[in-house]
Design a protein around this nucleic acid. Sequence first.
DNA 1: TAAGATTGATTACAGATGTAGTCAATAGAA
DNA 2: TTCTATTGACTACATCTGTAATCAATCTTA
Lengths: 122, 122
Amino acid sequence: MAQRISQSELDIMNVLWEKSPMAASEVVERLDNNKDWSSRTVKTLLSRLVEKGALSTEADGRRYLYTPLIAKDTYASHAAKSLSERLFGGRAAPLVAHLAKGEGLSETDIEELEALLARLKK
Amino acid sequence: MAQRISQSELDIMNVLWEKSPMAASEVVERLDNNKDWSSRTVKTLLSRLVEKGALSTEADGRRYLYTPLIAKDTYASHAAKSLSERLFGGRAAPLVAHLAKGEGLSETDIEELEALLARLKK
DNA sequence: TAAGATTGATTACAGATGTAGTCAATAGAA
DNA sequence: TTCTATTGACTACATCTGTAATCAATCTTA
């Protein structure tokens, strides 16, 4: 199950979930638009994620290529469930209501959700 | 906006969101069913929440009564939005899909959600 | 009134987290 | 071949978290 992934670590995971395997230097570049981290910081976060079992490494010359060991889907399910449990005893509806209130739902989202619910009802 | 509330602190907030104001000793009792914390631990967490501006205190003899300064709704909206942003660029649908996959949705939830979506469409 | 219980204040301390710096080896450039 | 840039390994350090312990004041109970 791997340990808990911290906020900053999640930023790294997001980059690697988009494309992998990837070397540390590439991760730094990709983050550069959003984050103002030194490459040392990124390296540290990568190492911690490897320790935690969230990333695997593969040697490529004298550097490593990193690949997620945890799928984004798996992580997202856990995180979503954990949040709804901590706040609403596991019920999802209130959580969605809050997303909606925060203008989190677009027209498209609503349609997608309706389709999803229809599927679930069967 | 108050700073970030940690996991353990959230357990305390949940107790006070159910009923407030409440003295530390009551919080300890209420938590006793779920958590195995010493009363010292609970006191520490209460103090930190006061420092963070998440709780207010009111003297009651030589003890304090604690009241949430942040509404559960407000917190939930932030948390839900933040999660969906970190994972799905702010889109809610994928998050709900994940809740559904983790068996987080009961029959009742589905109905509630349909009603909610119907309301949002208008 | 003396002793014990309770309360907030202060202190403790290890592990997680955010954010790097230093070092030694090595690959590439001149 | 010598200098430099890059890379992983190791170290650093303040803050946050989880989980309390100690202390002094005060309330309660015998």
